[in-house]
């Protein structure tokens, strides 16, 4: 009985986990290059809004509308992160303040544009978002097939692929070595002829692209339209996953799955006798409580990029 329930939870848990993982990977790129990005939430909002709007507008003409929507979400995320990059890299802004500003901005811009485009406080609802799929062949694998390959959103496979790509880029290529050096010791990187500002732009824009994608994924799988509540703190959970996953792509994957399941649990709790009595708010709180506990647990071990959040002044030697 319980086993089937857990299996049933998989698609929904993976649906929630996907945007968390993707956005957290975005945070990883940004912080590894040395720029703290607490605007993941805001960028997800913008990405989600863009994806939903494009889907609504193109739906009548093409079945590919949601996928085009995702691409536009990525573009919108990049545009948004460009502001963060410019402020924190060129104008030496405090990165947390700049991120906060973007989070406020996102709420304003998306609803402002909704009013201009759709004349209401939200986008119109789309009829089809991204569709679930069953992977032929793989779905026949006992247990694993049921867990990961039957009636799942393909966005989860995108998330996993991105984890692998990120790991490869960050740990195996010259690009990754250079990017990490910018996040740890930008003066050292610069003295070796690496363009610190350029690497950081790449890091921040990658975070914009991924968080924008995450926002689109979230709205097009878990929602029927973009509203101011569509993202409801998922960007901050992504940030938490980054910390929880210790700035490592596989750690991020594990943390994202963990938070995905804890969200799914809040939906299924009423069917599980010993959890049914707990209020749903309890489950909403869980990821945040776990993150604080994790932070205490990791306390004293410096695991994040050393120079992340510091203003880099090329004049300082």
């Amino acid at each position: 009985m319980k086993a089937t329930l857990i299996l049933e939870m998989f698609p929904i848990a993976l649906m929630f986990a996907s945007p968390i993982i993707i956005a957290a990977l975005g945070g990883l790129f940004s912080e590894r290059s040395g720029i703290v990005n607490i605007a993941l939430e805001g960028i997800m909002m913008v990405g989600g809004f863009a994806a939903a709007s494009v889907t609504v507008l193109l739906e009548p003409s093409t079945p590919l509308a949601p996928w085009i929507g995702l691409l536009v979400g990525i573009a919108a995320g990049i545009a948004m992160s460009l502001l963060h990059a410019f402020a924190s890299i060129n104008l030496k802004a405090n990165q947390v303040i700049s991120g906060t500003a973007l989070n406020i901005l996102a709420g304003g811009v998306t609803i402002y544009l909704s009013q201009i485009i759709f004349h209401q406080q939200r986008t119109r609802s789309f009829s089809n978002g991204i569709q679930k799929m069953t992977v032929p062949g793989l779905s026949k694998i006992p247990l694993l097939g049921k867990m990961f390959f039957i009636e799942n959103y393909p966005t989860f496979y995108i998330a996993v692929a991105l984890v692998l790509i990120t790991w490869f880029l960050v740990y195996k290529t010259p690009f990754g070595l250079r990017m990490r050096s910018c996040g740890e010791h930008p003066q050292a990187a610069a003295s070796m002829g690496i363009n610190v500002a350029g690497m950081r732009y790449i890091g921040v824009l990658a975070s914009g692209a991924l968080a924008g994608l995450a926002g689109g994924v979230m709205v097009l799988t878990a929602d029927i339209q973009y509203t101011i509540m569509s993202i409801h703190g998922t960007g901050f959970i992504a940030l938490a996953s980054l910390v929880f996953g210790r700035w490592n792509p596989f750690g991020v994957l594990a943390a994202g799955l963990f938070f995905g399941f804890s969200t799914a649990l809040s939906f299924y709790a009423k069917d599980i006798t010993f959890l049914a009595k707990l209020p749903s708010e309890f489950f909403y709180m869980l990821p945040y409580i776990f993150t604080i506990v994790a932070l205490i647990f990791f306390a004293g071990k410096s695991v994040g990029p050393k120079a992340a959040g510091e203003i880099y002044d090329s004049g300082k030697r």
Binding site: A87, K92, A93, S98, A101, I104
Partner: peptide, 10 residues
Amino acid sequence: QASIVLFVAM
């Protein structure tokens, strides 16, 4: 408001 904050940060 957001842009004012952004400009202050800059």
